[in-house]
Design a protein around this nucleic acid. Structure first.
Lengths: 196, 196
DNA sequence: GTCTATATTGCGATAGAC
DNA sequence: GTCTATCGCAATATAGAC
């Protein structure tokens, strides 16, 4: 295995394994076997299993950085919220393991929670809060809306839909073809919910 | 340790440990130590660590059974949905580890997912779907509402608020004193979102 | 029912050859 | 940079004394 291919192979093979079973559910032997490399390579490149896990999480959460662009855009507040929902759906479709890492760290935090996951979540929530506050001045929002409750409600509607998929696959159609309808639905509820 | 006290002590001590670290993150030694019993008692009473985990999950998810009563009540559909939200909040306050087991099994399923967790989730979603369908006949709901998207949106708003707490504690006030305001907020958004 | 002692297995990590 | 071999440890589970 040539040079940096090895390092990338290990990360690529580790993503679905860590996502499915968590940090403690996978052994270095299993990780090395899936990557087709010798198990000592994991210590060589990452300093151990936990180092590999941290590298995987860093790569997974890097995609969240792009969300910051929404705040600066010259569009309506509600259009910004719709962009957030669209970006979230697109992200989960493109990177189907991200939500697993996200919620696994929220429920069973490792050392990475404080260093990687929590800052990433805080950043996203802060963007949504700022967007809402910006809109308060010149949008026709209802009186008495609590900013935090409002933006967490929006985030909850879209994230929970994906989180529940393993349990509701036979009850609810989670096909990507329905994503547009889902986005429209959530934005309809949210828009009517917060406007005067 | 007298008789059945022992069995119950083990379960009581196991709940926060399994909730915080997951099935693979806790050892039988740690479990026995926290319960103040000999480690062989776990095999004696539960047949092993996985048996104890299954017993813990069964006990945790038993509280969901009461939700079925909402369906039969002679009240408005929207009042039923509010009762669901209230019951969810009250449940998480009374049983602060349930959500951890819930989402841990959704993201990193064990053998218990198919036998205990998924059936419990399906049951709740089915109750919400039936409640919505019942209401379609005699409530002033908007046209074109997708039942699944609608009820998952409601469930998402309330569940995600609690799921995110470990990450947003410094950003958002998650105190129980605010629960009434939160419930009112979510029901306001949901009600305006689905009525004509 | 509860204990001690132990059997057995699998773990993560690394020394050292190439 | 990659391999083999192995070290040391912690895991679960249980046999057998009381």
């Amino acid at each position: 295995m040539a040079d940096n291919d090895c390092r990338e192979n290990i990360i690529a093979a580790a993503i679905p394994l860590f996502a499915a079973k968590g940090l403690n559910g996978v052994s270095v032997r299993e990780l090395a076997g899936a990557a087709g490399v010798n198990l000592s390579m994991i210590s060589y490149y990452f300093g151990g299993k936990e180092g590999l896990y941290a590298a995987v999480l860093s790569a997974q959460f890097a995609v969240l950085d792009k969300l910051g662009e929404i705040k600066q855009m010259d569009i309506d507040t509600l259009q910004k919220f719709e962009l957030y929902v669209r970006a979230t759906v697109a992200r989960y479709r493109r990177s189907p393991y991200l939500l697993r890492f996200y919620t696994s760290e929220l429920t069973n935090p490792t050392a990475c929670f404080e260093t990687i996951v929590k800052p990433a979540i805080v950043k996203v929530v802060q963007i949504l809060l700022d967007t809402f506050t910006d809109g308060l001045g010149h949008e026709r929002f209802r009186e008495g809306l609590n900013p935090a409750d409002t933006v967490l409600a929006l985030a909850g509607m879209i994230n929970f839909y994906f989180l529940l998929e393993p349990a509701t696959a036979e009850l609810v159609d989670h096909a990507p073809e329905r994503d547009e309808q889902l986005i429209g639905h959530i934005m309809d509820i949210f828009t009517r919910g917060i406007l005067k």
